[in-house]
């Protein structure tokens, strides 16, 4: 399997994702420069964390117009797997590939710590190896992670089961205290209706191996590989 990692000026987790894909998972990985207008042979595109284009105006607002984004949109429209982590999630929401918006944290401060997440569904390529209801511990590091969508969109998200991750406490309860940024309904990660595009504020790329003291993030990447292999076998 080959991961393609988009590099915007200001991306700073591109190498973390590359390391996980190539050295932890043992799969192929390639960087995709934001000025490229096409890519080929990629099975999963990752938009990494960072501060693309300085986060000027709004996080992701300028990055969504980088030339590579047209190719990412076409890839997603063909059913390709697209995974936006942190700043990558902000870019995908600005691009309209995911619903809602990510706003300034309710507490106004940049939040950098471990949080607990409840996995809301297993039937996505990004959670295929994680049982629904599982509580994961992943780190967040963001200033604009407060998920917002108008009430009617939130309702639609719930109906279509597009909320894939919610902030929760260690026991899996979604509470105000366990919500690091004021996100509506504790939303930490959403997918599109088709389920092939995911945005997630916490960083699985920063905790994918034991040497870092936490390997729980690897479960998302293992899921992606598992889902991709399953799809490939079905094609053959």
């Amino acid at each position: 399997m080959k991961f393609g990692i988009v590099v915007f000026p200001g991306s700073n987790c591109d190498h973390d994702v590359y390391h996980v894909a190539k050295h932890v998972l043992g799969h192929e990985a390639a960087f995709l420069w934001h000025k490229d207008t096409s890519f080929a042979g990629i099975d999963c595109v990752v938009l990494p964390g960072g501060f693309a284009h300085g986060d000027y105006l709004r996080a992701g607002a300028i990055a969504r117009f980088s030339p590579i984004m047209k190719a990412v949109e076409a890839f997603a429209a063909r059913g390709g797997l697209v995974f936006g982590i942190c700043n990558g999630f902000q870019v995908l929401s600005e691009a309209g590939l995911l619903p809602g918006a990510l706003m300034c944290n309710a507490g106004l401060k940049y939040v950098c710590r471990d949080v607990f997440l409840r996995v809301e569904r297993q039937d996505t390529p990004f959670t295929a190896r994680i049982k629904q209801g599982t509580v994961l511990k992943l780190p967040v590091g963001h200033g604009e992670g407060c998920y917002y969508a108008p009430e009617e969109i939130l309702k639609e998200l719930e109906e279509k089961r597009q909320v894939v991750f919610r902030y929760c406490d260690a026991g899996g309860q979604v509470t105000a205290d366990s919500n690091p940024n004021g996100s509506l309904r504790g939303i930490a990660g959403v997918c599109n209706a088709r389920g092939n595009v995911l945005g997630l504020m916490p960083h699985p790329d920063r905790c994918a191996e034991e040497v870092l003291g936490n390997a729980q993030g690897r479960r998302l990447f293992d899921s992606i590989v598992y889902a991709w292999e399953l799809a490939r076998r079905q094609r053959i």
Binding site: F65, A101, M103, A149
Partner: peptide
């Protein structure tokens, strides 16, 4: 297109 995010 750019200056405002009309979602918010």
């Amino acid at each position: 297109k750019l200056l405002a995010n009309t979602v918010i």
